[in-house]
Computed example of a mutant assay.
Amino acid sequence: MKTLRLLHRWTGGLIGLLLAILGFTGALLVHEDAFLRATMPHAADAQRQDTATLAAMAAKVFAAEDRPRSIVLATPRLGLNKLAYKGEHAAYADQDGNIVQSWTSNWARPEIWLFDLHHHLFNGDTGEIVGGIAGLAGLGFVISGLILWWPTRRMFHIRPWPRMMKRAAIVHHHRDLGALLAPLLILSLTTGAAMNLKWFSQALRAPFSPPAVMEQASVAPKIKGGKLTKELDWGKIIGAAQARFPGAEVRTIGLPQKKGGLIAIRLRQQREWLPNGRSMAWFDPADGRLVASRDALALPLGSRIANADYPLHAAKVGGLAYRLVMTLSGLTLALLGTLTVATFWGNPTGVKRRKPKAEAATSVG
């Protein structure tokens, strides 16, 4: 138990602040759509999914001289389309294809750099891996914390804040709060680590589907497309995608990224939790002909379980109640991480400091 306590204390002191940052930024990102609806024109517009509107918008956006690579379409909670160009160039557009705001740096939009901090730690793929490892470390903290808390369970108290800002009170609050919200923390940390670390995700789903089977199911079709034509019938393309998956919501439209590539349309069927879905329809850019499709509901069980990571982690299901639950999870992680670092560096050894005894007064007679 002593070794576990030391390991829990030292690792928490070293990366607690990183976990606090991930928790706090995650709590803010849960409410990204609400922030945009309050600050951006047309963000509160009702979602339109009729073929005519989508086709007219795609034709207008992709006919522009500086056309984007892809479009993420409006949702029931956010009435803006997001256009992605090369690099950090992106834009918000209304559902008729009119640009509302454009930017060339992630720093121009708070929700963009906040996501970059939360998901990549401002360091691309390397930061993503570091964040995933931090998530695994956080899982270790929760499990070891529960073990350390168990002998003190009879002294359990529910407090949102320590009774006093002294080490003993902070440690007691830390253990009780961590134990109380352990299920939420485990959910947040596990899904976050699984999204960032492919090997961890595969290991979790291996009992349901072999990794090789899941990998093969996610491979794009090996079909060579023709040259992208400017006279594409977007109504025909989008209509074919909707006919392939009746009742599905069209979520993204992407142009070929290299020579011989295909137009990719991503859809979300009603039974899919992932906001942008995983159902796919691919089209030849030369004539708009449907050449391949993939039904997300027919993917291996392990892949379907993995597709629940993001909606559970980012509170994209469950409505306002679940968003508030995951906000609580993020803020709790931020509080636990911050106070851990503060108490650790205030006394790294954890040894109770004794006040020096006053020397006995002496007198000369």
Rank of each mutant, 00 (worst) to 15 (best):
A93Q: 03
A93W: 01
R67S: 11
D94K: 00
N98Y: 09
A168P: 07
R109E: 09
L328F: 12
A292Y: 01
A34D: 15
V341M: 03
W199Q: 11
T152N: 15
K258Q: 12
A296F: 01
I158K: 12
A248N: 04
G254W: 08
F208N: 00
G140K: 07
L28C: 13
G254N: 13
W149K: 09
I147G: 10
G12D: 08
D50F: 06
K2M: 11
G13N: 04
K236I: 03
L262A: 05
K258V: 07
K352G: 10
A38R: 13
R109A: 08
A46P: 04
D66H: 14
I170D: 09
D45V: 01
K166P: 04
L335N: 05
E249H: 10
F200K: 04
T104L: 12
R353W: 08
A46Q: 14
T104R: 15
M1C: 09
R354Y: 09
G226M: 01
P151R: 09
L14S: 11
A308V: 10
L73S: 01
P151H: 12
L339S: 14
L184M: 11
R353Y: 07
W345R: 06
L54A: 01
A321P: 03
V364A: 15
I99H: 07
D287T: 02
S144T: 14
D45Y: 05
W345C: 05
L184S: 03
L177Q: 07
V291H: 00
Q270R: 13
S279M: 03
